[in-house]
């Protein structure tokens, strides 16, 4: 059945699917579903914590439930935005060298931000 739609050239090259083509597509949607649940809590909590003083912010992050939810929100959001920004870069940057540099910087920045946020949350909470 699937053979009938392949061109003769396609059969000769035999490259087919790379088997992981849908990974980013699915990952972006699954992380989106998780964020729909996390975002309302995160926005209201963040605004409340920012409006307080230093002690309020510290106390907010130090609560076990808040610490876990912040880590989940930040981790999921950074995963989601790394894939999203990758698509934007691939769409708009035609020059190969610049595109590669920006893609690498995008990965580095996402991971650095996660390391900084995770270190901060865990240190405050413990």
């Amino acid at each position: 059945m699937s053979e009938s739609i392949r061109t003769p050239l396609g059969k000769v090259r035999g490259l087919g699917s790379a088997k992981a083509g849908a990974r980013h597509f699915i990952g972006q949607r699954v992380s989106a579903i998780a964020l729909i649940v996390l975002v309302p809590w995160f926005l209201i909590s963040l605004l409340g914590a920012v409006r307080g003083d230093y002690g309020d912010a510290q106390y907010f992050v130090s609560q076990p439930l808040n610490a876990v939810l912040i880590l989940l929100t930040v981790g999921t959001a950074l995963y989601h935005m790394r894939i999203g920004m990758q698509v934007v870069i691939e769409d708009y940057i035609g020059r190969t060298a610049l595109r590669m540099v920006l893609l690498i910087l995008n990965s580095f920045l996402s991971i650095v931000l996660f390391a900084a946020a995770a270190y901060a949350v865990v240190t405050i909470a413990i």
């Binding site: 209201i44 605004l47 914590a49 409006r51 309020d56 106390y59 130090s62």
Partner: peptide, 17 residues
């Protein structure tokens, strides 16, 4: 609504000392 609600519920679990 969120901008306003964040003031209305300053006592969300663990939000404020």
């Amino acid at each position: 609504l969120v901008w306003w609600a964040a003031d209305l519920f300053p006592g969300l679990p663990g939000l404020v000392d």
